[in-house]
Design a protein around this nucleic acid. Structure first.
Lengths: 206, 206
DNA sequence: GTCTATAGCTGGATAGAC
DNA sequence: GTCTATCCAGCTATAGAC
């Protein structure tokens, strides 16, 4: 499996990402990662002292990228609805790359809320421009229809994230019904999310 | 912790439900369950040969109730849209009672897909009348607008289940923004889901 | 840097006294 | 039925040769 033209550290990170994504922090075995990387288990510890550190290395970067991606939401040069559309696109594409991220975050947060806050606060710089606040302002200023921002945010995140969180369930459901849920459906998914956003945020349809 | 007025078996089941819900099959330790029940670890094995069997005992019942609840979907005396509305209500109320059920199922399925299939097939009797098949038929017969049943099913489940799955995340998000997400919001949530169902399934709005 | 070998821990399961 | 004590497998982590 090892790609000889890469250095070992990069190979490990890549393999770890693959395995962690597939099996989660606790499901993944160091041996699995070593096999995937085509190296020995001990080398993992040589490069990254322990499992947790390796995990952080993989997901710390991903989280940072996520928040960076999502800064679009505070770009005041665009209409809010366009920002939300872009936000949903980036969210889905991010999750397509890190399908285990949501469920991982959920587990982490629920098991150690305090720790999570520390880590995320270190990454997020400006809480002022969260999607929630942008929505609230949009409603107040009359740029958006009168919606409940919290419910909308919940709905939007649900539509984007749950398909990845619950992929195993859907594979099971679809399997039993002769239908397939594959990556090709991400486009269809996004389309339905965009429909929802227009339905909720366009003033024209009122 | 032990309730002396109950027999040991019931106490174990109760404790197991609590612990399994909180930590999942693999996160839960037999020791945790024993502590919760105020008894010894060995007794768990005495009553329920092993961990998996105990687990089945706890969740078999809940799952069975769920599928029973959801049979509404095959009641052909009602218009499909009404069945879907009722389906979403029951789904949300079920999850309000077992908020950890989704995430629990997801974790279990992803860690052991084969096992899951066996168990669910044992409960579900008639796969013919799944929501997915009802939707497909509805579209074919012209009772519904031309939608993609798989995407709709995905969207619907997302809207219903993710709020429970991701409750920890939402508490964190809302906390940072001076908003609260509480049980009182279940009604608001259902309302927005119903809006979505009407939006997608009503022929009138076309 | 990379390997083999192994220490050390955790947690499910069992034996056997009472 | 309930307990204590213990076994054993699986896994992370480390020591030490090369």
């Amino acid at each position: 499996m090892k790609l000889k033209d890469q250095n070992t550290e990069a190979t490990i990170l890549e393999s770890a990402k693959l395995i962690f994504m597939e099996k989660g922090l606790y499901g993944a075995r160091m041996q699995d990662i070593a096999n995937q990387a085509g190296i020995n288990k001990a080398l993992l510890h040589y490069y990254f002292r322990n499992k947790e550190r390796l995990f952080d290395e993989v997901f710390g970067g991903a989280l940072a990228r996520y928040f960076q991606n999502m800064e679009i939401i505070s770009d005041e040069s665009l209409p809010i609805i366009d920002r939300v559309l872009t936000y949903s696109n980036r969210f889905v594409y991010f999750l397509a790359e890190y399908p285990q991220m949501s469920i991982f975050l959920i587990k982490e947060i629920s098991s150690n809320q305090a720790l999570f806050h520390l880590k995320v606060q270190g990454i997020k710089k400006d809480k002022k421009y969260s999607l929630l606040n942008v929505l609230k302002e949009g409603v107040e200023k009359g740029e958006l229809p009168v919606i409940d921002p919290v419910v909308f945010l919940m709905n939007l995140h649900s539509l984007c994230a749950y398909p990845f969180v619950a992929a195993p369930i859907f594979h099971a459901i679809c399997q039993g019904s002769g239908v397939q849920w594959t990556d090709a459906n991400h486009e269809k998914l996004l389309q339905s999310i965009h429909e929802f956003i227009h339905f909720k945020l366009s003033k024209s349809h009122l």
